[in-house]
Design a protein around this nucleic acid. Structure first.
Lengths: 228, 228
DNA sequence: TCCTCGATCGAACGTTCGTTCGTATCCTAC
DNA sequence: GTAGGATACGAACGAACGTTCGATCGAGGA
């Protein structure tokens, strides 16, 4: 009775609170791959069964529905982003070090989990209203973390006051540089993620004609998994 | 007889060469709206019939298939981008003026045709191999235009030589800032497209702590339509 | 030994999908 | 007036979809 069961049915807790075991984890990874390539509606459960080597009905032992899979990818993805993003912000002292840390984490994380991150970017249209709210809330929290960092960098750099509207725009411009990489980045052609992170950091702070100082590389680090 | 017919059937020329009349144009606009929100596979012909006030079978008078709609949105979208992007590059003299012109056009165009541009960004996965090649070719040509501009700006700014890899990365970072706006930009909250274009231009050139010179605004201009 | 329960499967259900077919209406050229 | 093309529609087809159901198998505790 009770305790941790890995079946999808017969649980009392909401699915996002249940631990992601090996079976479900593999499912989510393959599902993210399919959804990233074909979109949520273009990824069929039959395709997922094929690539996971399972039977169609066997999938429903791990998730109650296809929407559950999408929701779990979104929930664990954004939760990990928020947790690590906040931790990165607190691990450094100065505003620019915080910024460097955040960019480094975000870029390496995106490069390591491209399929999942692409699913996150597709929005919450296919989710129920309540779940969409949950995901949007997590996304907003993540955005707020970077905005706060950007705000502090702006204030420490400018002489006069900086408008909130401009901070908002700059935050999204930075997210744009970092998120767009899923569409073109290849480690073989464009260098290691750390290199890319450094280029984004310098571009955002100093622009194309930016100074050549501040040379220290981002330390190569472990990349966090999406679920554990 | 012969000449311009607006029916989908009985034509000899490839569909992308045929003029986009009022009927097909309206169809494409609504289709782009649906596909931008729900993805290609999530946008059904029945939904399209509903929002256009037509019957389901009536849609097939204008396009032979749903894939045709996706292809036409992609083809005319990228074709317009390439044509105007190239024209913008030639309309200015110095490298930085060319860059300013390109950014201004791209941002205003994206802000004016958000749904279509989001469809363009979703990739060519749902298209046939040949059509996917055609679209990728157009996209590559558009990318090359901006890369050439960025290369010249880099060379005119730097003392030493600039690596192609770095130019490549910077080009994509700039595209990232410009393309990401579909996810967050709202003219009411974040200012006019011209203002946003100016901020992207300054950020890309000078970074966050960038100079305040170069104050002249982008001129407010007409935005090109997707098909004519 | 038997019973339970997680894990897995084949078969099928009802729905929705893209597309086709036959037909009807309107406008225009001859 | 009538032939022919553009425009539009309802009904239907076959395929693919997400999901459910009942059964089987194997391991572990009573």
């Amino acid at each position: 009775m009770g305790g941790a069961r890995s079946s999808a049915a017969g649980r009392k807790e909401p699915i996002e609170r249940q631990p992601v075991g090996e079976g479900l984890g593999g499912l989510l990874r393959k599902a993210a791959r399919l959804m990233a390539r074909n979109g949520f509606h273009g990824a069929s459960m039959r395709d997922l069964a094929k690539v996971t080597g399972r039977s169609l009905s066997g999938l429903y032992h791990y998730a109650r529905s296809k929407e559950d899979l999408l929701y779990l990818i979104n929930f664990h993805g954004f939760t990990t982003l928020v947790e690590h993003g906040r931790a990165r912000g607190m691990a450094f002292r100065g505003p620019r070090e915080k910024l460097r840390g955040f960019i480094s984490f975000h870029v390496r994380y995106f490069a390591a989990h491209r399929d999942e991150m692409r699913v996150l970017m597709w929005g919450t249209q296919a989710l129920s209203d309540e779940r969409a709210r949950t995901i949007r809330n997590l996304k907003d929290r993540y955005t707020a973390i970077l905005r706060e960092i950007v705000r502090n960098v702006c204030r420490s750099a400018a002489k006069g006051p900086v408008s909130e509207k401009s901070i908002d725009r700059k935050t999204f411009l930075l997210f744009g540089m970092m998120n767009w990489i899923y569409g073109w980045y290849s480690a073989a052609r464009h260098g290691a993620p750390e290199e890319l992170a450094e280029e984004i950091y310098r571009t955002f702070l100093y622009g194309l004609s930016g100074r050549r100082r501040e040379r220290r590389k981002f330390p190569a680090q472990e990349v966090a998994p999406l679920w554990n």
